[in-house]
Design a protein around this nucleic acid. Structure first.
Length: 849
RNA sequence: GGGCGCGUAGCUCAGCGGUAGAGCGCUCGCUUCACACGCGAGAGGUCGCUGGUUCGAACCCAGCCGCGCCCACCA
């Protein structure tokens, strides 16, 4: 080692991520390791496309978790020698981005209409440049090994062409059509939104009962509604056809109060006989069910609420211009005046709200573009049923299939400016649908844009150059792995599977892992508006990216979990431990001059650590293959802290200081493999340590990932060593409880039957007595000789406690063995274990005297 | 209204048919020549409740009590 490097290693007693991380990351970028060539086949290559973050903001904890998982797998596969691509990009996020930019405008006292469409879009692009770059920087802070040279954006020119191709193709197939239909109108964004962007909340409203007089007779039909203002658009009253109470009225008419309109009384199965009076007012223009009923019966569709959320002229002079809430108040008052309001009671029900703007959804009939999904869904259902796309954890497969089997048409048009303009042009009655502008004069393009998810649905192949047959597409599609939050399983994952099969000829990925949601420390959602968010960048500043990555993986699970500072600290501790263990090894090991794997070692401790190392490699690899990140992280931690540092390094220290070549060889080898094994989870600290390793022949980021060497795994030896470790613990525990100060070395007569490893005595500070003596106590066969340092009082106390505990256990074991049912029915090895256990307890009790 | 999941040590979570585990926190002791972001030793659980299956249940089954999420067009 260069003297300068040695000096730095000697002096740096703590891993300092702030100093090292950006330097290390720059080294990776310089090496070009994240930018694969488009060679080989998708089958042999490994690729992942990042779930593109919205350009609306900054990296949050969900991205950090998601990114840590992807990077762990990507790095592992890259190290394993596969041509690996992790494609980075961002999503234009139509509504969300437009909303934040509009908010900024409002603060300047401006609005988009005054600016005009082109100027507004230019303004959003400025925003995009700013935030897109920020997101890229933040992924780099996390250590994400994305291909930063292949970065894509869902509004790139090439991407836009792919979107148009998809739209036109679906149109030509007859899946996409334009229709006047009831949509979820979001008054906040002044746009239609899809069913998936609607969130239902429990609300307590007032349920009003209104008497509708029947024409020509002295009877009323009482209907119940939570939205009396919509009565202005009523065009029928419905009853259940089986409801005898009203059988004679079907076909008759009511007179709509306030309005005076004559509306038919119809019979429809949808009406619930049990609810209220069993009569239902029908408002086809403003209620989803009523709309369906209206279409079934050919009812008139009247619209009284406009897209601005205010009453229109159809509502009548008294109400025009009022907000819905004001209109409700006015209508109720008018009904009261007329004496037709027969009841008011509180009523709790679920009410739709816009996921984006938070405003209450106004169901409206509107001219929109829709996409029929059945044909696209069928092969996507089959793909998941057959596990060609394998969903983990498995319960989400069912959820996906249930949803897909009930799939409904998708409203794909949005009344926004920021997004992919719908590739449809109109000229009088003519309609042109095409990938590029129509020939001729006078064409006007549809004003609307496509739902953001329409473009993200084609992300895995559009980012690789589709519709062209590009080298990237051939080398990296289909991708291998997708990790996602469950909330976008339908919104995004399902749609990618559908478009992948339809347009790219294959499923977009083999595996989908649905990860947990990290909640705030108090169990609430992490959310900016609640102020419960924890900023991953701040955590990186505090503890380092390795610590955060480890922490997130360790706390992740198949269920939702609360953010755990302790796990991040555990990661920080692990980085530091690795750093310091490496210092010990690298500063003291004698360099064999060339990279040599240890020969079959003579000493059991050497064979033991090599066995533990290979066992850990096998275990971690298997866990990562199963996407069990949390247990993988714990296994790494356990190996480094317990096996390597607490035991092996302590055992081997004297040999290391003596320049023992065998010990050095084992240590350098073990360190090399450990660094490579840990690298996918904690890339920075491992890369840095590797730069000091004598075997270094390039950066760790492309160092071969260790494959477990089965021959070195020796379960028998591990068990035997486990006993020696346990023995050491017993002796330490005994002396602690006997009040023996740590400095004191006790004398003891070792058990005669089999040799005890040297380290047991050394690490427990118990030395073999020169000559026999009269032991005052026996600990696992060791006869401890008297010493003035033993606190007899404490010892007696300890003995009696131990005895009580053992006796209780003995009673339990004996009870089991005394049970004929157990001895006869339990597997023989279980019975044998219990017998052994009984013997052990009896032996220890005998030792205690 | 359907569906899914969760209730295990003070906290956050593993374990999911054969002696209750981890990390943090807590107690005691250590400036032991890699690391105090450390080392050693401990204390601490009737595994939500009630039944059932089993030689044996935290783990399987049924019911109940709490909590969370997803889906759903009863005004």
């Amino acid at each position: 080692m260069e003297p300068e490097a040695r000096k730095k290693l000697e002096e740096t007693t703590r891993w300092d991520p702030a100093e090292a991380e950006s330097r290390i990351f720059a080294g990776w970028l310089d090496g070009g390791y994240f930018h694969p060539e488009a060679t080989g086949t998708a089958e042999e290559n490994y690729s992942v496309s990042i779930p593109p973050p919205n350009v609306t903001g900054v990296l949050h904890m969900g991205h950090a978790l998601n990114g840590s998982m992807q990077d762990a797998l990507v790095r592992m596969n890259r190290m394993a020698g596969r041509n690996t691509l992790w494609l980075l990009g961002t999503d234009h996020a139509g509504i969300a981005t437009q909303a934040v930019v509009e908010k900024g405008l409002r603060e300047e006292g401006r609005d988009r209409h005054e600016m005009g469409r082109d100027a507004f879009i230019e303004r959003v692009w400025e925003w995009k440049e700013l935030y897109g770059a920020r997101i890229r920087d933040q992924y780099q802070r996390l250590g994400a090994s994305c291909d930063y040279e292949r970065e894509r954006f869902t509004l790139d020119e090439g991407y836009a062409r792919a979107v148009r191709r998809v739209f036109v193709s679906l149109f030509e197939k007859g899946y996409i059509y334009r229709d006047n239909y009831m949509v979820n109108w979001d008054p906040g964004s002044r746009s239609a939104i899809s069913d998936l962007e609607v969130e239902n909340r429990e609300e307590t409203d007032t349920l009003y009962s209104i008497d509708y007089p029947v024409e020509g007779v002295d009877r009323v039909l009482t209907v119940a509604t939570v939205r009396p203002e919509t009565m202005l658009a009523d065009t029928a009253v419905a009853v259940n056809p089986a409801d005898e109470r009203y059988a004679d009225l079907v076909g008759q008419h009511c007179i709509l109060p306030l309005v005076g309109r004559r509306i038919p009384i119809i019979a429809d199965e949808h009406v619930d006989v049990e609810f209220g009076t069993g009569a239902l007012k029908i408002t086809p223009g403003h209620d989803v069910n009523d709309f369906e009923i209206g279409r079934r019966h050919g009812l008139e569709e009247i619209t009284v609420i406009g897209e601005d959320g205010r009453m229109n002229a159809e509502a009548g002079e008294a109400y025009e211009g009022l907000t819905v809430a004001e209109a409700q108040e006015a209508v109720v008052e008018a009904l009261r005046q007329e004496g037709v309001l027969s009841a008011e009671e509180p009523y709790t029900h679920s009410v739709p709200f816009s996921h984006r703007s938070g405003e209450r959804i106004e169901p409206l009939i509107s001219l929109q573009w829709f996409c029929r999904m059945d044909e696209l869904a069928a092969p996507a259902i089959e793909a998941v049923e057959q596990d060609r796309v394998k969903i983990t954890p498995e319960q989400w497969k069912r959820v996906y299939l249930d949803w897909m089997n009930e799939i409904r048409p998708w409203c794909v048009s949005r009344q926004l400016w920021w997004g992919h303009r719908i590739p449809v042009w109109y000229r009088g009655d003519e309609v042109y649908v095409g990938e590029s502008d129509p020939e001729g004069e006078g064409w006007v393009q549809d004003e609307d844009v496509l739902d953001t998810w329409f473009s993200s649905a084609i992300w895995p192949f559009a980012t690789l150059g589709w519709p062209d047959d590009t080298p990237d597409l051939r080398a990296f599609y289909p991708t291998d792995f997708l990790t996602t939050a469950r909330e976008i399983l339908f919104l995004w994952v399902a749609r990618m599977i559908m478009t992948g099969i339809e347009f790219a000829g294959d499923v977009p990925f083999d595996d989908v892992y649905v990860h947990s949601v990290i909640q705030a420390r108090d169990g609430r959602r992490m959310s900016k508006s609640l102020g419960t968010g924890i900023d991953p960048l701040e955590e990186i500043d505090r503890h380092g990216a390795d610590a955060l990555r480890f922490g997130l993986l360790a706390m992740s699970s198949t269920q939702d979990v609360r953010y755990s500072d302790a796990k991040v600290q555990q990661g920080r501790d692990l980085a530091n431990k690795l750093w310091n263990a490496s210092r010990l090894i690298l500063l003291n090991a004698s360099d064999p001059g060339e990279r040599v794997p240890p020969a079959e070692p003579a000493l059991p401790e050497d064979r033991w650590i090599l066995s533990r190392l290979e066992s850990t490699i096998a275990e971690v690899t298997e866990l990562l293959d199963r996407y069990d990140f949390s247990h993988a992280a714990q296994a790494l931690y356990g190996f480094v802290f317990a096996d390597l540092c607490d035991w092996y390094l302590e055992i081997v220290k004297p040999r290391l200081y003596d320049g023992d070549q065998a010990a050095s060889t084992v240590l350098l080898w073990t360190l090399e493999r450990t660094l490579a094994l840990v690298h996918p989870v904690m890339p920075f600290v491992t890369e840095e340590i590797w730069s000091y390793h004598p075997y270094r022949d390039g950066q760790l980021v492309i160092h071969p990932f260790p494959e477990a060497i089965g021959d070195r795994i020796d379960p028998g030896l591990e068990a035997e060593f486990g006993r020696a470790i346990e023995l050491t613990r017993q002796l330490r525990g005994w002396r602690d409880q006997a009040g023996v100060p740590p400095r004191v070395i006790l004398s003891a007569v070792p058990p005669g039957d089999e040799p005890v490893p040297e380290f047991v005595g050394r690490l427990s500070r118990v030395e073999q007595a020169e000559s026999g003596g009269d032991p005052i106590a026996t600990v696992s066969g060791f006869g401890i000789l008297a010493s003035g340092e033993i606190d007899e009082e404490a010892l007696r106390e300890r003995l009696s406690q131990r005895r009580t505990k053992l006796e209780a256990e003995l009673a339990k074991v004996a009870g089991k063995l005394g049970n004929a049912g157990f001895v006869e029915n339990a597997p023989p090895e279980v019975v044998a274990e219990e017998r052994e256990r009984e013997a052990e307890i009896r032996a220890e009790l005998a030792e205690l005297g």
